[in-house]
């Protein structure tokens, strides 16, 4: 009894802190401070997911929501030193309208939640998933949903990621690289990058039966790329551009290939033949991990790295450092 109350107290504290940090992240005029608050907010949200017994989401939130998004925001700030303070965070009719719309959305969401949670005979998706889990080829329900039950959705998610990175590549040459790291940071990078690669491989493999999977593993690899880039490695450990193109599309390619083959076998698109599910899921996830990692690394580099010269255009962006 005591223990339950203690947990409830901790949960209340967590909820309050999350709201407070969220407010701190959007309300202040100092953007650098806001970004730091946002990173702390992301870590707390990860703890919230862990408390809700959603470790997959907690991992993804910590790695992508707090870690990589934070790194992206910080590097964007570095590019725009003039924009470090924004004077129109508060006030202005647009800001007021956005706040109102947000409040209305939250109220509508709360209303829907209250009504659906209280429904007499709810359809529990979790029960259906648990019932079908033995047929999915994997033991982790999240992976089963993402790569089997709704694999089509995940294929489209990878397409969204590809579209996003194409937009980033179209923006222009890469951001100014960082200067070479000092001996201490360089030592840490040399030590952490292999560890991150190892962790990514573990998460990819573990995704079949425990929390993990392509998105978390890809984020780990991308974190290694971010570390390398911060340490002064201009292309963040990525291979040469032709290989980058292959890696970027690897996830979708694997998905579509499997889909086309299953269609050829007379099954539905992405309906895995019996007994093959586990292996096919691992194959798709491995390709998706590489694609996600390359996408996130290129997003962090913030544009075309050296060597991305497209034929037929007067594109001379082979030099790195230009930001014009």
């Amino acid at each position: 009894m005591m223990a339950v109350q203690l947990w409830q107290l901790l949960d209340l504290l967590l909820a309050g802190l999350t709201l407070g940090l969220g407010w701190a992240a959007v309300s202040g005029p100092d953007l650098r401070r806001s970004v730091v608050f946002f990173i702390a907010f992301g870590l707390l949200v990860a703890v919230v997911w862990a408390r809700l017994r959603a470790p997959d989401l907690a991992l993804a939130e910590a790695a992508i929501g707090a870690g990589l998004s934070g790194a992206l925001l910080l590097s964007a700030l570095r590019d725009e030193p003039d924009a470090e303070t924004s004077d129109d965070v508060r006030g202005g009719p647009v800001a007021a309208l956005v706040s109102l719309a947000g409040l209305a959305l939250a109220a509508a969401f709360a209303w829907v939640m209250i009504h659906t949670l209280g429904a007499a005979d709810p359809v529990r998706l979790a029960d259906q998933i648990t019932a079908q889990l033995p047929n999915s080829g994997v033991g982790n329900p999240v992976t089963a949903v993402l790569l089997n039950f709704r694999a089509y959705d995940t294929l489209l998610e990878l397409a969204v990621l590809l579209a996003a990175v194409l937009g980033i590549l179209a923006l222009g040459p890469a951001r100014t690289p960082y200067r070479a790291a000092g001996p201490l940071l360089d030592g840490l990078i040399r030590w952490l990058v292999p560890l991150l690669i190892l962790t990514a491989g573990y998460l990819l493999w573990a995704g079949a039966h425990a929390p993990g999977g392509a998105f978390q593993a890809g984020a780990m690899l991308a974190a290694a790329a971010v570390m390398l880039r911060l340490g002064g490695h201009t292309i963040a450990g990525l291979p040469r551009p032709p290989m980058q193109r292959i890696l970027l599309t690897a996830g979708i390619a694997a998905f579509v290939l499997v889909g086309v083959i299953t269609t050829g076998l007379g099954l539905a698109f992405l309906q895995y033949p019996g007994g093959w599910s586990g292996g096919l899921i691992l194959l798709i996830e491995a390709a998706a991990t590489l694609a996600i990692a390359t996408t996130l690394a290129l997003a962090y580099i913030g544009g075309r790295p050296a060597g991305w010269v497209s034929e037929g255009s007067a594109d001379t962006t082979t030099k790195i450092g230009g930001r014009d």
Partner: peptide, 16 residues
């Protein structure tokens, strides 16, 4: 050990 290495390096970088 990981936090030790990361925080020592981060503190060094901030101080530098």
């Amino acid at each position: 050990v990981l936090v030790l290495a990361a925080s020592a390096t981060a503190a060094h970088l901030i101080a530098q």
